[in-house]
């Protein structure tokens, strides 16, 4: 037993303390956190835009110039573009997508690979966020919009002040789930040589040849960040739902 423990502590020393190897993990964690946060933000922005495009009911030409036909064409184009985006992103693996971004689209440029990673992750996440958002908007009863409009609100204000707050509340659990998936999915950025947490564990393993210790360490760190995020967002959800319990 003591021998086993001594052996374990020896390997712990070799894997994390000797040669400051924990710094690999720390640097990797920092990269993972940055890519995750930026990816989530980009995903939300893209997702909202695409969801709006999917539900687009542009009515400008018809209203001001009496040319409703043009509006119809615009709506159709927006819907086709957003549908194509969703279809392509959901129909291809994210690893393949990141390869395409890095080795095809950004190949001749000198954009830092971490930026490429963020774009690839955000672009991928955007499709899923868009579908979640669309589901949220569609889940709100049509009567809410009608009420808002008959109270004299513009369609924009109705969306912003009546429909969206309820929609976001409804889809928050699904959104949280998407963020969690995204954080874990950032492990694929090591495919384009970004030194993230997963890659840090692989590099340590390449130095110490210990089969599981660095990998388990990375797994524990991933678990902890996701746990923190979950706790934080669950609190937020509770706060939002306070008005529900009447």
């Amino acid at each position: 037993m003591t021998e086993w423990f001594a052996n374990l502590s020896h390997h712990f020393y070799r894997n994390f303390i000797y040669d400051n190897r924990w710094e690999w993990l720390l640097d990797g964690l920092w990269v993972t956190v940055r890519v995750s946060i930026a990816g989530i933000i980009l995903g939300i922005i893209l997702g909202c835009i695409v969801a709006a495009m999917r539900l687009s009911k542009v009515n400008i030409f018809g209203k001001y110039f009496g040319l409703g036909g043009i509006d119809k064409v615009i709506n159709k184009i927006l819907r086709i573009i957003s549908y194509l985006y969703l279809d392509i992103v959901r129909g291809t693996p994210s690893v393949t997508q990141i390869f395409i971004w890095y080795f095809v689209f950004f190949a001749p440029t000198n954009v830092p690979r971490i930026i490429v990673a963020i774009i690839a992750i955000g672009f991928n996440s955007g499709a899923y966020v868009a579908e979640i958002m669309r589901a949220g908007v569609l889940s709100i009863d049509k009567g809410q919009t009608e009420a808002g409009r008959s109270l004299g609100l513009t369609s924009f204000s109705t969306m912003g002040f009546i429909v969206m707050p309820q929609a976001v509340k409804n889809v928050l659990p699904a959104l949280v789930n998407e963020f969690i998936v995204l954080i874990k999915e950032t492990a694929i950025i090591s495919f384009i040589a970004v030194q993230d947490l997963n890659r840090a564990a692989v590099v340590i393993r390449g130095r110490t040849f210990h089969a599981w210790m660095p990998i388990i360490a990375a797994a524990v760190i991933y678990y902890i960040i996701i746990k923190i995020l979950t706790i934080f967002l669950r609190r937020l959800e509770k706060k939002i739902r306070q008005s529900d319990a009447r």
Binding site: V202, R205, F209, H210, A211
Partner: peptide, 12 residues
Amino acid sequence: MDFGAIIPAVQA
């Protein structure tokens, strides 16, 4: 396999 996984695989 991954180059870095070869020695762990031999050990295992």
